[in-house]
Design a protein around this nucleic acid. Structure first.
Lengths: 203, 203
DNA sequence: CGAGCGATTGAACCAGGTCAAACGGGGTGG
DNA sequence: CCACCCCGTTTGACCTGGTTCAATCGCTCG
């Protein structure tokens, strides 16, 4: 699973190997051509182009979700896709064709994810941030439990809060011990920090 | 296209005729069994059951979108569905089977709708309410342009505002002439009111 | 008629937004 | 190596848009 930069994705031939992206890397632009993927690890952020040409947050894809299935229909990606956390994508459909059940499952997953995202924009700021962190927790349970947090800017746009508010909520969580207080690497490096799920849901 | 009450939907045999629902009528409960539909007119609201058992707004389905495709996969509806405006549903798939393209198209529509809903929860209160009203405008252009507004409670839950705020925004729009000032029937009657799209986007 | 419910409006409050300043680490150029 | 800048983050102080609470209205239905 080689690391790539976004340019590598603009390949003409159908990919056969999984691709890895680092936190913040572009996966594809809206309107670009390419092939569909399935998220095998991490979280992908979608942005849509508004009528005024601005890009705005449109959704998330998590482990098992499809990315860009619409290219099979329309030949172009509908949204910009970015790696919210470092993530791994595998070509879809792999060796199996797109059978009815895979597509139905993808549809059900998409609706579930949409409901998750809507929930991230309901309720008080602290609750939203906590729910987002929970979503970002790795699917495979690990000890100690660690989460790779996206830049505050992303967390703010996803929760419809401001970076300042998100920062204050994270400070609060650290004060309560729900989050590891240590600052982490900046840049593209992994920014995992230990999380206490109990204290998170309590907050 | 006969009017029905929600009980009628709990039929065991696959439906062959379109069904109509009035504003506010239940279409199906989360976890119920039934068959998938396609919205041919109006707007449907989905609610999901949270971990604590509470129901909360999860999404919308508009003209052309599928409702409850997941029953083909899991045998049960994932969400509660309610008629946000009076609407017409037709059995899906109709005489055509669920071919690859229909499913892909449904997937693309679902993602588009999810992005719409997310956008309804961004920005200032007035902008959210205006965007929601635009979404509720009938797809087929009519003169004069009329929209059937859901109860304020629904509009509030969809936009993540309070009923009081929504009411104030609607009052503002009426004052500006973007909305017909006349009060409309309550209850299940149609509650259409004239809308000026220009004044709406200006507000 | 009275109960009940959705809608409306006013007044007070506050959670979160806004603005501003400062920090800290990484990268770059001298 | 250091100086400098850039950018993401943090924190404080203030302000406001939206929430909250409460009262009222209008319509429907029993």
């Amino acid at each position: 699973m080689p690391l790539t930069d976004s340019a590598t994705v603009m390949i003409a031939a159908e990919p056969t190997m999984p691709l890895c992206f680092l936190r913040g890397q572009r996966i594809h632009e809206a309107g670009a051509m390419g092939f569909p993927w399935r998220v095998s690890r991490g979280v992908v952020r979608f942005d849509t182009t508004e009528i005024d040409g601005e890009l705005s947050f449109a959704g998330l894809a998590m482990e098992g979700d499809l990315v860009g299935a619409e290219v099979l229909m329309f030949g172009r990606f509908a949204h910009r896709a970015t790696a919210l956390t470092s993530c791994q994508l595998e070509p879809w459909p792999g060796r199996m064709g797109q059978d009815r059940d895979s597509l139905l499952q993808a549809l059900a997953r998409a609706e579930q994810r949409a409901a998750d995202v809507v929930a991230l924009r309901s309720g008080q700021a602290m609750a939203r941030v906590c729910r987002l962190i929970e979503l970002l927790l790795p699917r495979a349970a690990t000890t100690p439990l660690k989460a790779e947090l996206p830049p505050l800017r992303d967390m703010a746009e996803i929760t419809a809060l401001t970076v300042e508010t998100v920062s204050r909520m994270l400070s609060g969580l650290r004060r309560q011990g729900a989050l590891e207080p240590d600052r982490e690497r900046r840049g593209n490096g992994s920014k995992s920090c230990r999380v206490s799920r109990e204290l998170l849901v309590a907050a």
